[in-house]
Write a protein that binds this DNA or RNA. Structure first.
Lengths: 212, 212
DNA sequence: CGCCTTCTTGAGCCGACTCAAAGCTAGTGG
DNA sequence: CCACTAGCTTTGAGTCGGCTCAAGAAGGCG
């Protein structure tokens, strides 16, 4: 992957809670995440927080930056991260190679956001959690990081609460019900979904939602 | 803008409840809305509905279609609409003229979605309504369709409920409180905001949210 | 071992929901 | 001009899903 030039400054690393981008900052490059998870979020008064995007291995962070705007929400590492930094300019010659994949990641990201509007606006706690776990499993699977019915899931219940718009306490209680019903196994940052079809039904997902 | 060919078939009209696009359909063109309002939405079981985007006069419907995907959510007219249909292909010569404005509308739409994730996930009924009314006023103003502190707002309370993730009954009661406090005037499809600053505070909006 | 974060449990509360009915309003046709 | 209708708005009363506050248990790590 690294050419003979192999600019070592292309590879960047982050630790949990470190910022990949701050609010109102014009990022100087896109991150192609090779390992680790990050998220974009916004804080409100009262300490309320809402996570508005997750970046998993293989993801581009953040597609919208290439449209030439400052980042309006901070992006922070949730785990240790290894990423490759690419220049932001769409006109760049290097960038032309990955034009297709870039537009795909932008469209995916856009569609995921639209799906989450539906979930946050209209769904119950169990439907929200089912949506999240299915989406994460599916994204990990497409990156070749799922093993059978399982994958890593390095989120705390508080992170999950801030994605699903719930409180950590209610996430905990709802997950217990789901575990008791055999819908998911989730412990030690590891997720197993015994039956994707059943969980999809519970998530009240549209047949067309790809979760990719 | 229209060349000497001036194809009259570029102009299209819709009536309320008519579809601009259906689910899983590859739209053959983008609509530049000249007059009227439309929305994108998704239906769930139990008749639950969530609106995921609004298209106002001056808006491009739907930026994401140009990225070459079938529409995953239907788009329907909320009022009478007059629009201009443009070919979808980004490579088109005609399209190059409006490349800048297209990317701007895509980025705006993406950012509005991210802002609404925060509102639907973490905000109270009054904060949600304040966010919506401010955003609509601001968008109308930028299109030159606001007059002083007022603008048209051709939505029913049920539409508003489906945007804000509330029930029509609760929208009604919350609007009454807001009217009683002098925060907004809203009647006969007409909106007046006596004090934008106060409403912005109540909306719990981030200082960086442009609402454009 | 001690510290810190995360997870779990309990008890009480409240914002928003449901169900149901009545009052408006605008448009239609006689 | 008025009756009729359909859709929208308003009101009331009761319920509930998810929240808050608080404390304790279980990990993980130096």
């Amino acid at each position: 992957m690294l050419s003979q030039v192999a600019p070592s400054e292309d590879l960047v690393f982050f630790r949990p809670h470190q910022f990949l981008a701050r609010e109102n900052e014009q990022p100087d490059g896109l991150f192609h995440i090779q390992e680790g998870w990050a998220c974009r979020y916004r804080m409100l008064s009262n300490g309320r927080r809402q996570i508005t995007a997750l970046y998993l291995p293989g993801d581009c962070c953040e597609p919208c930056w290439a449209l030439g705007r400052p980042s309006t929400q901070p992006v922070v590492a949730l785990t240790n991260i290894r990423a490759k930094k690419a220049p932001c300019r769409m006109s760049g010659a290097l960038f032309a190679d990955s034009r297709q994949s870039f537009w795909k990641s932008l469209a995916d990201s856009y569609e995921r956001q639209a799906n989450w509007l539906v979930t946050l606006g209209r769904k119950t706690a169990m439907e929200r959690l089912s949506h999240l776990l299915l989406e994460l499993f599916e994204r990990m699977r497409q990156s070749g990081l799922a093993y059978g019915q399982q994958c890593a899931l390095p989120l705390t219940q508080m992170d999950i609460a801030d994605i699903t718009g719930l409180t950590p306490v209610h996430v905990n209680r709802t997950l217990q019900v789901m575990r008791a019903r055999g819908l998911v196994e989730l412990q030690a940052k590891w997720l197993r979904i015994p039956d994707l079809g059943i969980l999809r039904e519970i998530a009240a997902l549209d047949a067309t939602e790809t979760l990719a």
